[in-house]
Amino acid sequence: MRIRAGWVLLPALACLVAVAIPGPAQASQGSTTAIPVLSAASPAAKSVRTITLITGDKVTVTRGAGGIPGISVQRGLGRTHIGFQASHEWHGTDQHISVVPSDAQALLTAGKLDPRLFDVTEQLDAGYDDASSDSLRLIYSSRSGKSATARSAIQQHGARITHTLDVLDGGSFAPAKRDAASFWKFVTGTQGLRGPLDKLWLNGRSRVALAESTAIIGAP
């Protein structure tokens, strides 16, 4: 059973913001709860692991008093105006935490971005935390007839294509996390998803959702 236990719009005034994530006993089917804002420097919070999102923003998962997890967000370079929406879902006893920057929401809604790009739990489970990996793990598809243009644009912005995926007219690539904020500007611009690129996925354990992969290969 999937339970969404809380949503919060994080303020965009500070460079570092933090929220607490309620435990399963506080969750109810379809409920929405306010998540209290914590001090980012709270002495009760112990840093666990940090990931860099495709936008260049850093998300740190912390564990405070009583083992209650929390998240803090450090905005990427030049992103002080960006807000964040944090959510968590319970899959049985497993909790998934997601953090979505405000400038990614429209592309997510349009189906241009894989939601797992903002699933903090998914990326930590895959070993993509900043201590373990210095690059983002991505897969792209290109618009019809634009595969060469898309490939060239990605390479021009400093990312090496690691594998070609003909079924997507795309491939996998791994831009450096240190350049993520500037790479995000390319992704959202006319050379990216508003141009030859069609969609971006997290290059995780399940690369493409079954419904999409079935449509791509023409399976019943």
Rank of each mutant, 00 (worst) to 15 (best):
H81T: 14
I51R: 08
W90P: 06
H88K: 02
P101M: 01
V48T: 12
Q105S: 12
L124Y: 07
I71M: 05
V99P: 06
A126E: 09
T62L: 15
D129F: 11
T52R: 11
S133W: 15
E89C: 11
Q85I: 11
S144T: 15
L107G: 01
R143K: 12
V100R: 08
G64C: 08
T121V: 04
Y128H: 14
R79A: 04
V120T: 00
S132I: 09
V99G: 07
S72Y: 02
L124S: 01
Y128N: 13
L113Y: 05
K58R: 15
K46G: 11
G64R: 12
Q95F: 02
G66P: 09
I54T: 12
R63Q: 08
K146P: 03
I139S: 02
G56D: 05
T109S: 03
G56K: 02
H91D: 15
A126C: 05
G145A: 03
Q85K: 10
S147A: 11
Y128T: 10
T50H: 01
V73C: 08
A65F: 13
T121D: 02
K146C: 10
G66Q: 10
F118W: 07
G83Y: 06
V100W: 07
D129H: 14
L77I: 14
Q105T: 13
H88W: 10
G56L: 01
T93H: 14
G78D: 00
S132L: 11
K46I: 13
T60A: 15
A65M: 14
K146L: 10
Y128S: 11
Q123T: 04
D134M: 12
T121I: 01
G127I: 05
S102G: 06
I97T: 06
Y128I: 12
A104E: 07
T50P: 06
L124D: 00
A148M: 07
K146Q: 13
L53Y: 09
T121N: 01
D57M: 05
E89T: 14
G67F: 06
A148T: 02
G83I: 06
T62E: 15
P101D: 08
A110D: 11
I68Q: 01
G70Y: 03
D130L: 10
I68P: 00
Q85M: 09
D129T: 12
S144K: 14
E122P: 12
G66W: 07
R137V: 11
I68A: 03
V100Y: 07
Q85P: 04
S133H: 15
S135V: 14
L107M: 03
A110W: 00
D134Q: 14
S142N: 00
V59G: 04
G76L: 02
S102P: 04
V100C: 01
R63M: 07
S102W: 04
V120E: 07
K146W: 07
D129L: 11
S47L: 14
I82L: 08
I71A: 05
D119C: 09
A148C: 03
I82A: 06
R75D: 00
S102M: 02
G78E: 02
Q95R: 02
T60S: 15
G78C: 07
S47T: 12
